[in-house]
Every structure is written in structure tokens, then in C-alpha cells.
């Protein structure tokens, strides 16, 4: 039981990690896009509405997919004034509770935003600016997808904590182990 939980959690976390590692490059693309727009306008008076819109499209996708990857890497921020003084078992409880709550919130938002995407898709929404990027619903669709990933990651972390708690043998913690800082 504990092993199954752990390996499921591990698999889910790995999937989130790989998706995140790919999505991370959107940051570099963003830097290059904005820099290109600035320099091309200044030096060649070249400007494209679509490329300007691409700036915040890239930011949006990065911000949304970053959530699950950030959680995967243990980058969530907490107030640890009391937490640090709690016994280990209670810390695990807070940890599991936090992840289950996050799971619930993420599922709820994914569900809410699926409707939001649907109403955009139903009318083939594009940019209101001529020359802007078409198919706005694709950008909006990043929302439910990203929140599903977040839900998966939150559940995986909760499962890993429970599994480790149940497992008699010590297991290296997943995810947090390679915390970035």
C-alpha cells in the first residue's frame, strides 16, 4: 500500500517535473521576444501587434505552468514562525493538510476555468486588436490544464507524505530534495 502510494506519487511528480522543465524555457523565449520587440522598433521601426501580444501570452503560460513545477521543487512560501517549533509528526500533518487543501482548490479552479474556456471556444474568440493573435481560447485553456497539473502535484505530495509515514523503511523525500536554493 505504502509502496504503491509512493511509486504513484513519484511517477506523477516526475511527469510534472518534466513538463515544468520544458515550460521553463518560455522564460528565455519571453526575454528574447520582448528584447526583439524593443530593438526592432528602435532600430528598424518594425513592430508587430502579434509579437507584442506574444509577450503576455508567454508570461501567462509560464505563470500558470510554473505553479505545479514550483510546488514540485518545494518553492511554496509559508510562515514558519510556529511551524518550525512543531513536532515532526505535526509538521507532516500540516504538510498533508496543506497539500490536500491545495488539491481541492486546484480542482475547483480547474473546473471553473473549463467553463470559462468553453465560452471562449464557442465563439472562436481572438484578439480584439487587428493583427493580434487568434484563438484566444488556447491561451485560456492553459488555465484548466495548469490547475489539473497543480492538483496532481499537490495530491502526489500528500500521497508521498502519507506513504512515507506508513512505510516502515526510510525513503528519500521526493521533490523537495532538489530544492533550488
Amino acid at each position: 500500500m505504502a509502496r504503491l502510494l509512493l511509486s504513484l506519487a513519484d511517477g506523477a511528480s516526475s511527469a510534472v517535473r518534466i513538463i515544468g522543465q520544458i515550460a521553463a524555457w518560455s522564460g528565455l523565449v519571453l526575454v528574447l521576444t520582448v528584447a526583439f520587440n524593443v530593438l526592432a522598433r528602435y532600430f528598424f521601426s518594425y513592430g508587430s501587434v502579434a509579437l507584442q501580444e506574444a509577450e503576455w501570452h508567454l508570461m501567462g503560460v509560464g505563470a500558470l505552468f510554473g505553479m505545479s513545477y514550483g510546488l514540485n521543487q518545494g518553492a511554496e512560501v509559508r510562515v514558519d514562525v510556529v511551524y518550525d517549533r512543531l513536532p515532526r509528526r505535526l509538521q507532516v500533518f500540516v504538510e498533508v493538510l496543506g497539500n490536500l487543501l491545495l488539491f481541492a482548490v486546484a480542482v475547483l479552479i480547474a473546473w471553473l476555468s473549463a467553463r470559462y474556456v468553453q465560452s471562449s471556444y464557442a465563439i472562436n474568440e481572438g484578439s480584439p486588436d487587428p493583427g493580434g493573435l487568434p484563438m484566444r481560447y488556447l491561451l485560456k485553456a492553459a488555465m484548466p490544464v495548469a490547475f489539473v497539473l497543480l492538483a496532481v502535484q499537490a495530491l502526489a505530495r500528500a500521497a508521498a507524505d502519507i506513504g512515507r509515514h506508513l512505510a516502515p523503511i526510510p525513503v528519500a523525500p521526493s521533490g523537495e530534495a532538489e530544492s533550488l536554493i
Binding site: 522598433r41 521601426s45 518594425y46 513592430g47 501587434v49 507584442q52 501580444e53 486588436d129 487587428p130 493583427g131
Partner: peptide, 15 residues
């Protein structure tokens, strides 16, 4: 829409 008209005349449209 006016942006599109200007763009056709060589204006570099900035949002």
C-alpha cells in the same frame, strides 16, 4: 481598427 489603418500607411503600431 484605426491602428490597422495607420499600419497600412507605415506607422509602427504600439500597444
Amino acid at each position: 481598427l484605426a491602428g490597422k489603418v495607420y499600419a497600412a500607411l507605415g506607422v509602427d503600431v504600439k500597444l
